[in-house]
């Protein structure tokens, strides 16, 4: 059910561009039978990103083994990963002319390696058909498995992204099947395995966290040697999901942006509509500037 009008503050407003490029993006995704987190997570930026010809591929199906309370992706028993998917993604990325390809997945606790080998296969396939494009992976926590993190890192993505999503005290309500320390450990390990690879993480605001708690997360990310951070407003995908406790004002996002820069993050994206892979190429470029 939709709620009544006037429920969003004025800064939670987007435009729905009716662009022919967006139709082309949809057609290519359909042609190669690919999932995107853009659709599955009901992303409010979808019109804008599709109109610019970008999308974030979501691999290993659109059914997740976890049931995080903020996320619109369906929970259930997923099918085995498809061997043809890496090639299909690579060809779609080529047809879309992507210069920076972002790949994420559902969480696959049912697979021995959590899907790490499939991520690696996608990275390799992307390199084959898109040698000029950079590759960013947004991975699940692999239950903290060192082997799985190593498999992904060894495939040499340009950016290794794993989201902490929220502050420590909210994990039991927001990500009950995940662990804050586990997520930090995944980021720290990835960096340790390959120091010249950019690492990235993100969190949502508006779930009831306190300023000090957000700052504590940012300090923990820096201690894990994380290079890039994204901060955005949590928006409830349906009434069955966690309610928005607070719409954080744009000025507050600006304040966090300044703080993150002071703390030494190489790139920061902070704003109400910022999502983990929103403007990913610009954020990566910023991180690579000397």
């Amino acid at each position: 059910m939709l709620q009544a009008k006037g429920k969003f503050p004025p800064w939670i407003k987007k435009r729905l561009p009716a662009s022919p490029v967006a139709d082309l993006t949809r057609r290519i995704l359909e042609q190669y039978d690919l999932n995107t987190v853009c659709r599955s997570a009901h992303c409010p930026n979808i019109g804008e990103c599709f109109a610019r010809g970008t999308a974030t591929f979501m691999i290993m199906g659109n059914v997740c083994t976890r049931s995080c309370r903020f996320c619109a992706v369906k929970t259930g028993k997923p099918s085995p990963p498809e061997d043809s998917e890496p090639e299909r993604i690579s060809l779609a990325a080529k047809e879309m002319g992507l210069r920076h390809v972002v790949v994420t997945s559902v969480t696959r606790d049912d697979l021995e390696d959590g899907g790490a080998a499939h991520f690696a296969a996608v990275i390799r396939a992307l390199r084959k058909h898109n040698p000029q494009a950079s590759v960013e992976v947004l991975v699940p926590d692999f239950k903290g498995s060192e082997d799985s993190v190593r498999i992904v890192v060894d495939a040499q993505p340009d950016v290794f992204n794993h989201n902490v999503e929220t502050v420590l005290s909210l994990y039991t309500t927001v990500r009950p099947e995940a662990g804050y320390r586990t997520s930090l450990g995944v980021l720290a390990l990835a960096k340790k395995l390959r120091t010249d690879m950019l690492t990235k993480s993100g969190l949502m605001l508006g779930l009831g966290e306190r300023h000090e708690e957000v700052e504590a997360v940012l300090y923990d990310l820096r201690r894990a040697d994380c290079d890039i951070v994204t901060i955005g407003q949590y928006l409830r995908p349906s009434p069955e999901h966690l309610p928005v406790v607070e719409f954080v004002e744009p000025a507050e996002f600006e304040r966090y942006l300044g703080l993150c820069k002071q703390m030494g993050f190489r790139a920061v994206a902070s704003g109400p509509f910022v999502r983990s892979s929103y403007n990913a190429i610009e954020v990566k470029d910023e991180a690579q500037r000397p």
Binding site: L2, Q3, K5, I12, K13, R15, L16, A18, P44, L235
Partner: peptide
């Protein structure tokens, strides 16, 4: 911008 619409996630202007 023709009309403002609201979904579960945000307010949208439809051009």
């Amino acid at each position: 911008d023709l009309v403002e619409m609201t979904t579960d996630k945000a307010t949208f202007n439809v051009p």
